[in-house]
Structures are given as C-alpha cells and as structure tokens.
C-alpha cells in the first residue's frame, strides 16, 4: 500500500508539472503585453520596459518557464496587482471555504446517491426503481446555479430555516456547518443523480457475478450479500467517477459561492477576472488544479484501499 501511494504521488507531481506547462503556455500565447495591461494606458514606454525586466519578460521563454516552474513549486505564485500581496497567501486564505464546500457536496451526493442506487438495484423493475431513475435524470439535468437559487429562495427566504448568505461565524463550527448546508447541496445535488445511476448499474452487474451466486449458495443473509459482498465492489467505479467529478464540482462552486455570497476560491477567481487581476487568475487556476489532482489521488487511494486487486497491480 505504501509503495502504491508513493507511485501515485509521483504521478500526481508529473500531472501538476504538465498542468503548469500548459498554464504557462496559455499565458504566453494570450495576445497583449502583461506589463502594458498591468500599468494601464497612461504608462510610458520606459516604465513598461522597467516592469518587463522586473517581471522577467525580457528573458528567453524557457528561462521564464523555468523560473515560473521553480517559483510555483516553492509556493511563490507572484504578487497580485491590486494589493501587491502574494497570490499564494490570498488563495490559501480562501481555499478552506471551497474545500469545505466540495467535501460538503461530495457528502450530499454520497449520502443520498449510494443508498438510492442500491435500493433501485435491489428493487429492479419496481416503481421505486423507476422513481429513482426519473429523479436521477432530473437532478442531473438541473444546473447547479438553478439549484442554488431555488434552495436559497425556498429554505432561506420563504421557510427561513437556513441562513441565506455568508460562511458563518469564524471559529463557530456549528454555525459554519449550517451555512454550508445549502451551498453544498447546490454543488452536490446533480451528483446524487450520477452516483445513483452509477451505483445501480454496477450493483446490477455485480449481483449477477459468480461469487454472489456462491455467497447465496452458502445461505448468507441478503443484507450481508447486498452491502458487504456486492456494494464493496459496486462502489469502486463510483469513487473513480467522483474523483473526476471534483473538477465539475469546482466549477459549480464558483456559482454557489457567488449566489450565497460565500468566500472561497470560486468567488476569488470571479472577482479577479472582473478586475483583470491576471496573476491572481493564474495562481487560482494553478491552486485549483493542484486541489483537483490531490482529490483525484485521494479517490485512487480509496479505490486501492477497497480493492486488493488494484493494490497488487502497483
């Protein structure tokens, strides 16, 4: 398991490095002079030249990339334009809110999706199965910002059960959790549908397997067969799917953070784009990439922990 983790971690480093190269190329290819953009139209050519030298833009491209690469791995993503604070500090301040939001979304989708998918598979062909099928497609089809707005209207404005905006009092975990309920529902609701469909399909496949027949031939109780013998296998593709789904949840988080006026990386990148704060945009995208790769790594490690066959392959 340890060597498996180390190998996967090595792969994660490679993926992040490639992502850095792509991000750097994109910045380089975007038309326009970063120094001119940063200084505005009234700057003189001498001022622009000075900033170019300061930003290292006069260097050959591979030197520029190398500097970017080395600095980024050391946590130096440059300074943002408006306040001149280090981008890394600004992003890391906001990051916990977004990670909490994503984990909340995953919790909703797993807590609802897995039991629903299981239930549908066990009761295949019944009204329950059909109901879960229709509901799944419905929640997959609704965009997360629509969920966010309606959740806000129904639970916060009309019923007034839950707070409408903000992330809760700092230091008050209960208050923060209450503030997390609606935004994370907006992020996770669509995934309830995906996971229910996925779990149902793989459960049906696993329940047909020879080893399930063996388990039945030994008279094991239905509960043990469904949850211990079948679900442990049926859940594996779902974990992988969730790992990939985190990317989509990160983009839903942007909407959820705007609608619920929550701090977070999504809100940060939205504001950064509106104010053309390019170093901040770059830094946020890079940090988001790292988060995506890390959570994917966690998903793979969970699959490895659940499936001895995967572990032995590494």
């Amino acid at each position: 398991m340890l060597s498996y983790s180390i190998k996967r971690l090595g792969l994660a480093v490679v993926i992040v490095s490639v992502a850095m190269l792509m991000l750097f190329s994109m910045i380089y290819l975007i038309p326009g002079d970063p120094a001119a953009v940063a200084l505005g139209p009234r700057a003189t050519e001498a001022m622009r030249e000075a900033l170019r030298v300061k930003m290292g833009l006069d260097q050959p491209i591979w030197v520029q990339f190398w500097n970017f690469f080395i600095n980024a791995w050391q946590g130096d993503l440059g300074n943002e334009v408006l306040s001149d604070r280090p981008v890394a500090t600004v992003v890391l301040e906001q990051l916990p809110y977004t990670i909490a939001l994503i984990l909340g979304g995953i919790s909703w989708s797993v807590a609802l999706g897995i039991p629903l998918g299981c239930w549908a598979a066990v009761k295949r062909g019944s009204w329950a199965d059909r109901l879960v099928g229709v509901l799944s497609v419905a929640v997959i089809a609704v965009p997360s910002f629509v969920v966010a707005i309606y959740a806000l209207l129904v639970f916060a404005v009309t019923l007034q059960w839950l707070p409408a905006i903000g992330a809760g009092e700092p230091g008050d975990l209960g208050d923060q959790l209450v503030h997390l309920l609606l935004p994370s529902l907006a992020v996770g609701l669509g995934w309830v549908g995906y996971i229910a469909r996925m779990v149902r399909a793989s459960m049906l496949e696993v329940l047909e397997a020879q080893h399930i027949r063996t388990a039945r031939a030994f008279g094991l109780p239905d509960r043990m067969i469904t949850y211990r013998y079948a679900l442990t296998i049926a859940i594996l593709p779902t974990v992988t799917l969730l790992g990939v789904g985190i990317g989509q949840m990160l983009s839903s988080a942007v909407f959820a953070e705007i609608v619920f006026a929550r701090p977070g990386v999504g809100k940060l990148v939205y504001d950064a784009i509106l104010t053309r704060n390019y170093p901040l945009v770059t830094g946020t995208v890079l940090v988001t990439t790292v988060i995506f790769v890390l959570l994917n790594l966690v998903a793979d490690l969970i699959v490895g922990a659940l499936d001895p066959r995967v572990r032995s392959r590494f």
Binding site: Q210, H211, T214, A215, A217, F218, G219, Y229
Partner: peptide, 25 residues
C-alpha cells in the same frame, strides 16, 4: 431453503476464478 444452504447443502461451482469474492480476504 436459505437455512439449509451451507450447513446441509453445500455447493462448489465450475469457475474457480470467479467463485470467490475478489475484495474480501
């Protein structure tokens, strides 16, 4: 019948590759 399967009535199936659960020791 479930109560008989196992203690009184045991089975060995054809395919040894798939007959045991792959994720349980």
């Amino acid at each position: 019948i479930q109560d008989l399967r196992g203690p009184r009535l045991s089975t060995v199936f054809q395919d040894p590759m798939g007959a045991l659960n792959p994720v349980i020791s």
